[in-house]
Amino acid sequence: MIVFLSALIHFGFAASGIVHSGIPVRQPDLGEPAFQSAENGWSAPLADGQGLVRVYVGRDADAAADWFERQRESFSRPLPDYAFADVAAGDGLGVLLFRDGNVAVMVKSTADNALSLATSLRERIVDNAAPPAIAAMRRTEDGWTIDAPGAVHSRVVGGGNVPFATAAEGGLIGVYVQRPTEITVWDAFGRATVIR
């Protein structure tokens, strides 16, 4: 039984701008993705160890533009504008920050190939994928069971003593002795859904 499902951050209903499905979180030239939050997306080190990418998939272009500006202002040295995608900043060498519709990306490279990496990542933007993963919480005899078909990662706040709930085949992500207070799940394209 689905007990509740609320505060869903939904994708695909952007008010304006291009709405992409996202960028696949697993890439051969990227390391293991780390999922930050619904507000800050996911990140991954470059597989060669020479940099980092951050990717944000917003519900619309405005959300991505907000992320873009937040990223930009977190540089202690101001980033100059750069001509790339819808909007970009950086030098194209060590750093390139860009937005394409509702997808925004920050590339940092010590190999000075930020532009080529950004170009490659932009080409990997996916459109028209299936709807994002949604988590459901059920009360069971053992406690609270979280199901999230299609999720590749989850973060559960609260819930009690269950070692490391992780995405598993079939979407079962864990059984919790207490009712979680917040669940965030990410799908294969980096779209985050939160239920509270």
């Binding site: 930050q36 507000e39 800050n40 980092l52 040295r77």
Partner: peptide, 11 residues
């Protein structure tokens, strides 16, 4: 080079 963060972002 840039004063870029590696582990902190602002929500």
């Amino acid at each position: 080079r840039y004063g870029a963060s590696a582990y902190t972002q602002y929500a």
